[in-house]
């Protein structure tokens, strides 16, 4: 028997509300799961040459395992900073809209969502201060612990500190903690706080920053209760787990 379907929260997200008739791939949150940090790729990796991901969810078959994965671009127009997406995923799971014409039958229950963001890699990492915290606790990634070890690349969590203060909900209302100033940032239904270092963001470049499991697909109902038929048929043919949702 299949375990219960783990679904993402149907909340207002950085990219807005889910649209009727839409098809969404999800990575839901499960109480027996692992912290989101386990799914983050740190240091973020360059987007492979030859890959054109922008606004085009792309299927890629891993020749080693034969499993097809879904490569998805998280655009800066809705998630200006990687932290926006990561914090939303941490709180509500991942939900990304797909074209109903994607060949879903290539995917399987082993498929993963590989996520890239235009500002995930800090190419100036060697010239800038270590981040205060690396939530993956990688050696050499953070000033707080083990920071003297040589890092093997930029720390993903440095991108939190590179968010400019002006991106806060109220840049004039800092919260003092540990002798540092934090600001609140809101994206969709998610609020989180960050500690801007004031350093340059010009080194931020596109990178692959996460790989999360695909837990299922949500087909959002239209006003008459119907869903995207073509996508549903393909999901059924591919033996993929999906559900109908009001929003």
């Amino acid at each position: 028997m299949n375990p219960p379907l783990v679904v993402a929260d149907p909340v207002v997200r950085g990219c807005g509300e889910r649209t009727p008739g839409g098809v969404y791939v999800e990575a839901g949150l499960g109480v027996e799961g692992r912290p989101i940090e386990d799914f983050l790729i740190d240091p973020p990796l360059p987007v492979p040459a030859g890959l054109d991901l922008v606004n085009k969810p792309t299927l890629w078959q891993d020749e080693r395992s034969g499993i097809t994965h879904l490569l998805i671009w998280v655009g800066a127009e809705y998630y200006p900073w990687p932290a926006d997406f990561i914090e939303e995923a941490k709180a509500h799971g991942v939900s990304r809209k797909l074209t109903p014409f994607l060949d879903f039958t290539q995917l399987s229950d082993q498929s993963q969502m590989i996520l890239a963001h235009p500002r995930a890699r800090n190419t100036l990492w060697q010239d800038q201060a270590l981040p205060h915290t690396c939530h993956k606790q990688l050696p050499g990634h953070a000033a707080a612990s083990g920071g003297q070890m040589a890092a093997q690349g930029p720390c993903l969590f440095k991108t939190y500190e590179l968010i400019p203060r002006a991106a806060a909900v109220d840049p004039t209302a800092p919260i003092d903690l540990d002798g540092r100033q934090y600001f609140v940032r809101m994206i969709g239904s998610t609020a989180y706080y960050f500690n801007p270092s004031g350093e340059s963001v010009v080194g931020l470049d596109e990178g692959v920053f996460a790989s999360v499991p695909i837990t299922g697909f949500a087909l959002i109902k239209r006003a008459d209760g119907s869903v995207q038929e073509q996508a549903e048929a393909a999901l059924r043919r591919g033996h993929l787990r999906y559900y109908h949702a009001d929003r």
Partner: peptide, 15 residues
Amino acid sequence: IPLLPTGSESPVPCP
């Protein structure tokens, strides 16, 4: 790109 281990016990993120 490091991928998650595959198998019947593929983990999911937790709240």
